[in-house]
Nucleic acid binder design. Structure first.
Lengths: 221, 221
DNA sequence: CGTTCCTTTGAACATAGTCAATAAACGTGG
DNA sequence: CCACGTTTATTGACTATGTTCAAAGGAACG
């Protein structure tokens, strides 16, 4: 779990000790259960030790939008927010383990930096999600999302280069990409046909990472 | 300008003095110019004293997504970010006036609170934008965006109840809502036909705010 | 080993995009 | 203040992309 934090900030002994202590307070949440219930205030940020989660929003008629995914090693919530309630419930997409995120106390500048970077990355992912939904077609959305997921899993360590394990149904991917499950299925088929990805069960391999990245490149960023 | 800050936090003398001093350091930026250039680091957050701005992202082939609007009284950027560069350039949609956002020094708890709330609101708007683009059709997107803009302009004061002045072209609205300018035009026509809005030049009146809100209501939020 | 959830595929349909032409509004220089 | 050029808004006809509805085949799980 610590891998992602060491990758984004220079952690020192006190930072590592705090993370280690927090990791021993793990809480488990079953698949499909809310980690942070709708309308409740998150007392403290959480670290996602294992499993995948997401933040969702529902429209009145049942349409669902997945706002963002939370991958293993990433942070749920932020220090220093003012919100009385969370802005969206956080849902366990797989069985997950979380622990309270240790507050960055005195001498824990590494932790503080890691939280700041995490927050910036989160905003970056949100902006990318907006661009994906607003200006990309289904094919590009899928490619862009796979690239992002690839990068994020790499940042959390444990799989550099290896195929990704994506424990999601096509319906969940659809709710994240603003499509229907049927169209996600067809788009994945097109990606396979074009030899861009290989899918085996819940395992996805990017066969041509450069081509994928080139397809969804933004100007300047 | 101070109106929005007093609406979201309890400001005291020192907060107000700092804001007042900052307001005298206004800088002007012409329409279509970058307030925060692509790839540059924002040294300090800015207060948008007057005019409309937006954060944009461009795809390689020229497609543009407006990530968010920044309305008069709102904040550009945040304290405590770690990013080496801004995540997206900020563009002046009208002639604008900005000033540096005063850092919340000792005894300025009101200012600190106002920045925290502003940041939360910004995230709220981003999540709403994601839901809009991912799960609403053109008609709903327009209604939802008008409702949000209405609320945000109200929060900044100066117009409660009065028609909104929206100094944007239909092409800019299109880039924000993930549509084409042609379809924005048709959607606005439909809204007029349905007596939901009235458009007179750059002035838009929500004729039935309750109906509009009901149409785009989310579950729980 | 049956049930349920998930994936896959087809056919018909709906929504939004594209291309093109015209009209209206705006800005600028004379 | 008017004439001109440019930008923006409006409309129509056609096309493309993605949705809906439905059914069937597979995989996962008690």
């Amino acid at each position: 779990m610590v891998h992602r934090f060491t990758a984004i900030a220079a952690l020192h002994d006190r930072d590592l000790a705090a993370l280690d202590a927090a990791g021993r307070m793990a809480r488990h949440v079953a698949q499909r259960r809310e980690i942070v219930a709708e309308g409740t205030k998150l007392q403290q940020p959480l670290l996602l030790l294992d499993g995948w989660a997401c933040r969702t929003r529902l429209l009145a008629d049942g349409r669902r939008q997945i706002l963002q995914f939370v991958l293993p090693g990433e942070v749920i919530g932020n220090f220093g927010t003012s919100a009385l309630t969370t802005l969206a419930p956080v849902l366990a997409l797989t069985p997950i383990a979380v622990c309270p995120a240790p507050a960055p106390g005195a001498g824990m500048t590494g932790l503080a930096e890691a939280y700041a970077v995490s927050r910036d990355l989160e905003e970056r992912y949100l902006l990318r999600q907006i661009t994906r939904l607003g200006r990309m077609n289904a094919y590009e959305r899928m490619v862009d999302w796979l690239c992002e997921t690839d990068e994020r899993l790499n940042l959390s360590g444990l799989r550099d280069g290896a195929p990704m394990t994506v424990p999601l149904t096509q319906e969940i991917i659809a709710d994240a990409l603003g499509l229907t499950n049927v169209h996600v299925n067809r788009t994945l088929a097109a990606l396979r046909r074009d030899k861009l990805v290989q899918v085996e069960g819940k395992t996805i391999t990017l066969l041509d990472r450069n081509a994928c990245r080139a397809m969804v490149r933004t100007r300047g960023f």
